[in-house]
Computed example of a mutant assay.
Amino acid sequence: MQNEFQLEVSTDVLLNLNKDYIGSLVEQARLNLSDGQIDALKLLVTAKKGQELFSQLEKTVRPYAEAETRLGKGEVYKKFGCDITERMTGVSYDFTNCDDAEWNELSAQIEALEKKKKEREKFLKTITKPIFDENGVQINPPIHKGKLGLAVSIK
């Protein structure tokens, strides 16, 4: 009979988790998996569903928390075993507004080369054995890489 890996999921328990404890839970699960004490597929589905739940929850809650919590520059808010700071996230730059001729020219060149590269890659994907170009140079088929694994889709 298999022992079930038990993880209590309550707000109080989650708020008191720290990295060391999370690491020890994962290590215990790994040991139980390697000993055959846990149904690996059941634990994978549990982890996937938990990941989806908490990902959606974070996206929903984050705007509210950011609106309610205003910290000064460099200020650290310590709560629930976490350090919370306010800073710029997802920083990016849009250079199209600069109207820089050199940047615009480089971007156009890169775009054209990327398009040509994609077209060549499409051709190279069709090669299944070595061929020779018009100059007699051998062109080998690309190496097809991948890993067989389980895809979990939540219904």
Score class of each variant (00 low, 15 high):
Met1Arg: 07
Met1Leu: 11
Met1Glu: 05
Gln2Tyr: 15
Asn3Ile: 04
Glu4Phe: 01
Glu4Ile: 12
Phe5Leu: 13
Leu7His: 02
Asp12Leu: 10
Leu14Gln: 01
Leu14Lys: 06
Leu15Gly: 04
Leu17Phe: 08
Leu17Lys: 03
Leu17Tyr: 06
Asn18Ser: 11
Asn18Tyr: 03
Lys19Gln: 12
Lys19Arg: 15
Lys19Gly: 13
Asp20Met: 04
Asp20Leu: 07
Gly23Thr: 03
Ser24Arg: 13
Ser24Glu: 06
Arg30Tyr: 08
Asn32Trp: 06
Ser34Ile: 13
Ile38Gly: 00
Asp39Lys: 00
Leu41Trp: 15
Leu41Met: 14
Leu43Asp: 00
Leu44Thr: 00
Thr46Lys: 14
Lys48Ala: 10
Lys48Asn: 13
Lys49Asn: 10
Lys49Gly: 01
Gln51Ala: 15
Gln51Asn: 03
Gln51Arg: 13
Gln51Tyr: 09
Leu53Cys: 14
Ser55Trp: 05
Gln56Asp: 09
Leu57Arg: 14
Thr60Tyr: 06
Val61Tyr: 01
Val61Phe: 02
Arg62Val: 10
Ala65Phe: 15
Ala67Asp: 09
Thr69Trp: 01
Thr69Gly: 03
Leu71Val: 01
Leu71Trp: 03
Gly72Ile: 02
Glu75Met: 05
Val76Asp: 04
Tyr77Pro: 05
Tyr77His: 06
Lys78Met: 05
Lys79Asp: 09
Lys79Pro: 02
Phe80Ile: 13
Phe80Ser: 13
Asp83Lys: 11
Asp83Thr: 05
Thr85Ile: 04
Thr85Glu: 10
Thr85Lys: 09
Glu86Pro: 02
Glu86Leu: 11
Arg87Asp: 10
Met88Asp: 15
Met88Trp: 11
Thr89Cys: 14
Val91Met: 15
Tyr93Thr: 07
Phe95Ile: 14
Asn97Gln: 12
Asp100Cys: 06
Asn104His: 09
Glu105Asn: 11
Ser107Ile: 08
Ala108Cys: 11
Gln109Tyr: 01
Ile110Pro: 01
Glu111Ser: 12
Ala112Leu: 05
Glu114Arg: 08
Glu114Val: 12
Lys115Gly: 13
Lys115Glu: 11
Lys116Asn: 15
Lys117Thr: 09
Lys117Gln: 15
Arg120Thr: 06
Arg120Ala: 12
Lys122Gly: 04
Phe123Glu: 07
Thr128Phe: 09
Lys129Thr: 10
Lys129Leu: 14
Ile131Asn: 01
Ile131Val: 04
Asn135Cys: 14
Gln138Leu: 14
Ile139Thr: 07
Ile139Asn: 01
Ile139Pro: 00
Asn140Glu: 13
Asn140His: 15
Asn140Pro: 05
Pro142Ala: 08
Ile143Arg: 08
His144Lys: 12
His144Trp: 06
Leu148Ser: 10
Gly149Lys: 05
Ala151Ile: 15
Val152Arg: 08
Val152Ile: 15
Ile154Asn: 04
Lys155Tyr: 06
Lys155Thr: 07
Lys155Arg: 14
